[in-house]
Simulated scan of single mutants.
Amino acid sequence: MIVTASTQASKTAIAFAILLALVTVPPVIAYATVVHRTCRSIDPRAKTIGLVPMLIMTVL
Rank of each mutant, 00 (worst) to 15 (best):
I14F: 08
T38R: 00
A13F: 13
A46D: 06
F16P: 02
A5N: 07
H36M: 10
V34C: 05
P53V: 02
I42R: 00
A9C: 14
A46F: 00
K47F: 06
T33W: 07
A32P: 01
G50F: 02
P53G: 03
L20C: 08
M54R: 03
V59W: 07
P44V: 06
K47N: 02
V25Q: 07
A9S: 15
L20S: 11
P44Q: 00
A30F: 10
I18E: 11
T48I: 11
D43R: 03
Q8S: 13
T4A: 14
R40V: 13
V3M: 00
L55A: 10
M57Y: 11
A46M: 06
T7E: 12
P27W: 06
T7V: 14
I42H: 01
P26S: 04
T58Q: 07
S41K: 00
P53I: 02
T24H: 09
R37T: 12
L55F: 05
T48N: 05
T12S: 12
V59Q: 04
F16K: 10
T38C: 00
A17C: 10
D43L: 07
V25K: 06
S41F: 01
Q8A: 13
T12W: 12
L60P: 02
L20D: 07
A30D: 06
V34A: 13
T24N: 14
V3E: 05
Y31V: 11
S10G: 13
I49L: 09
M1H: 09
G50I: 10
C39E: 11
A9Q: 10
V23Y: 02
T33R: 05
L51N: 01
A13R: 13
L20G: 10
S6W: 07
K47R: 07
P26M: 04
T33L: 12
S41G: 01
S10F: 02
V23M: 11
S41D: 01
H36T: 14
G50V: 09
A9V: 06
L19G: 11
V35A: 07
T58H: 05
H36V: 09
I49W: 02
C39H: 04
A15P: 01
I29E: 00
T12L: 15
V25L: 13
A13I: 15
I56F: 14
S6F: 12
I14K: 03
P26H: 05
V35R: 03
I42D: 03
T4Q: 07
A13Q: 15
F16E: 13
A32R: 01
Q8F: 14
L19H: 00
A9T: 09
M54C: 10
V59P: 03
P26Y: 00
Q8V: 13
L51G: 01
T4D: 11
R37N: 12
I42L: 11
S6K: 09
V23K: 02
T33H: 02
A32E: 06
V59E: 02
T58W: 00
D43Y: 02
V52C: 01
I56G: 10
A21G: 11
L20I: 12
S10C: 09
R45T: 14
P44K: 01
R45S: 15
A5I: 15
T38K: 01
I18C: 07
S41N: 04
T38A: 07
M54D: 07
A17G: 08
I29M: 04
L51K: 03
A30V: 15
V59N: 05
L19A: 14
